[in-house]
């Protein structure tokens, strides 16, 4: 059978000891489409603790954003459906929670920022109004106080001249400043978890670094758990504690950022690392993973990565690899993870 549902649970380290701050456990998300059921998220498990940064890596369509939206509870259902899995926050499953209770968490204790801040901010309201709305709606604060808090937050995310710009509209800001406004809005109520969905993709490289620096700084100040969703490995290396690499709706590798970069345990991670341009290999042909990302409506049999995989053997075409435990904090969904690991990075 093509693309069967796969159960994948948390790594041993996450199951032992205290319950993590946020734990996604064997999450499945399906989309009902005209062409059939799309398994966008197929048994994803990961955890984040206070002060920790998890980077979720993957190409578009790998399911990383859908997982985040399921955590936030902002998926459109239908067409989306969550047939099984848990999203535990402080040990309580958010998915089975009553809507009112979940509303208390969304935006206040788990917040999210999005990729393109220009379209993610409402064009017809001032930025101060949009930031202040968090205080007005969630804390019943007066307009005046909320505006003052908005200025404070804009200062905190280092928007120059916050006081004079609080009544400006989103289109009057530059891309980097707009993303800062998104961040200000998200951290307004001191959330415990911040999910950043490709926060720097739409920005210039120099601005990217500033935004990442800001996120890391804010995280340290308030001990937030940060889930950083990105397809850009370069962005991740400096700020992340651990990485989860997604492919075709599954997590194919879990690792600490150090281990993952030094010696990947999945051929896809290895391919991603090798396709980063490097100064010391100047003049050589740039490596690219051959083939195309899988079509979720027509997934390959066996391991979803097998058509593109240099380590492919016969059973890869037929057997779906489970998430093998590499160590307490490491997992790889590759039958031949040992060989990959032994090869090391280039």
């Amino acid at each position: 059978m093509k693309n069967p549902s796969v159960d994948t649970h948390l790594l041993p380290a996450d199951r032992a000891g205290d319950e993590p701050l946020l734990a996604v456990d064997n999450l499945h998300v399906e989309f009902q489409t005209r062409q059939g059921v799309v398994r966008a998220v197929n048994g994803v498990s990961y955890s984040v603790n206070a002060g920790e940064t998890l980077a979720v890596l993957g190409e578009s369509g790998s399911g990383k954003s859908v997982t985040a939206q399921a955590i936030m509870g902002i998926l459109d259902m239908p067409p989306a459906r969550i047939p099984k899995g848990e999203v535990r926050f402080h040990g309580t499953d958010l998915l089975t929670m009553r809507d009112e209770d979940r509303g208390q968490i969304r935006g206040r204790r788990i917040a999210m920022i999005f990729q393109d801040a220009l379209s993610a901010l409402n064009p017809v309201f001032t930025v101060g109004w949009q930031i202040g709305e968090m205080f007005r709606v969630h804390q019943g604060m007066s307009k005046r106080d909320a505006r003052r808090k908005a200025v404070e937050l804009m200062d905190r995310v280092r928007i120059p001249g916050a006081k004079s710009r609080v009544d400006d509209f989103p289109h009057q800001f530059s891309g980097g400043m707009r993303q800062r406004i998104m961040i200000a809005m998200a951290i307004a109520l001191d959330p415990e978890i911040l999910i950043a969905d490709e926060p720097t993709t739409a920005l210039d490289v120099t601005v990217q670094a500033q935004i990442m620096g800001l996120l890391a700084e804010l995280q340290q100040e308030s001990d937030m758990g940060l889930i950083l969703i990105t397809h850009d490995l370069g962005v991740v290396a400096d700020v992340a504690d651990k990485i989860a690499v997604m492919y075709g709706g599954r997590i194919v590798e879990h690792a600490s950022v150090f281990d993952g970069y030094r010696a990947p345990a999945h051929p896809y991670t290895k391919g991603l690392l090798e396709s980063i341009p490097r100064v010391d290999l100047k003049g050589q042909e740039l490596y690219a993973i051959k083939g195309m990302p899988p079509n979720l409506l027509d997934m390959p049999t066996g391991c979803a990565f097998h058509p593109r995989c240099p380590y492919r053997k016969e059973n890869c075409v037929t057997d779906v690899p489970p998430l093998y435990t590499v160590s307490d904090t490491r997992g790889s969904a590759c039958h031949y993870w040992r060989e990959v690991l032994d090869d090391g990075s280039r």
Binding site: G103, A111, M112, F114, S119, A120, L121, N122
Partner: peptide
Amino acid sequence: RADYIRTAVAKGLPRRR
């Protein structure tokens, strides 16, 4: 379907708002 509506939902605003 706009992104800023998704943002508004993610801010935890009531549906009415």
